[in-house]
Amino acid sequence: MSHDNSSPKFLQHHFHDVEQQYETAKLGMWAFILTEVLTFGGLFVAYVVYRSWYPEMFVGANLLLDVNKGLLNTIVLITSSLTMVLAVWAIQKKNQKLSLFMLIATFLFAFMFLGIKYLEYSHKFEVGQLPGEYYSYMGPEIAHLNNPHIFFSIYFIMTGLHGLHVAIGMGLIAWLIYATAKGNLNSEYYTPMEMIGIFWHLVDLIWIYLFPLFYLI
């Protein structure tokens, strides 16, 4: 309420100035990222504990995953991170058209990621490499191993929660596309785009660990 008439309309009355509003949003976003790290952290602990109990089973079971699909998804997600960061860069440079293009590219890469994940999941459903009591795969390469259903329980929960984050990210990016196309976001005010960008890079960052843990080692 203390603002004079020259203050921009996106500045909310409980903030002193634009800079304070921006820094507050960013601090809040990082507090959220902290809770995300701890959410996934519990699952990483489950992975570490079970791997320490069943080292041979984990090494055997990860050979059942398709490294090529995992690698392709890694490349897709890194590329989407680049297009996301370029969307923010373009809007900082007052190029809304390029920013819009980069957001749409990010959305499509996210869709591609989920598409590849769907192919992987449907194959696992087909052959019975499923979590817990639904597990039924006893192929020659794994029949001698102890309790591989535990590997797939952890695999499905971790990649599933990650996939849910990708889906939520797609929804947020869709909203950014709408807001940018409408002109609500511009070089003066792009805070939502930068914050959703941070979320999207976290999704990339978690996959950077999931890929080697499940597909490579």
Partner: peptide, 21 residues
């Protein structure tokens, strides 16, 4: 302060893993 918060979350994850193991 943002980097500090992020690193703190990783430190607590480290404690979580270590104590559980």
């Amino acid at each position: 302060k943002n980097l500090t918060m992020f690193v703190m979350s990783l430190m607590f994850l480290g404690i979580f893993i270590t104590v559980t193991l």
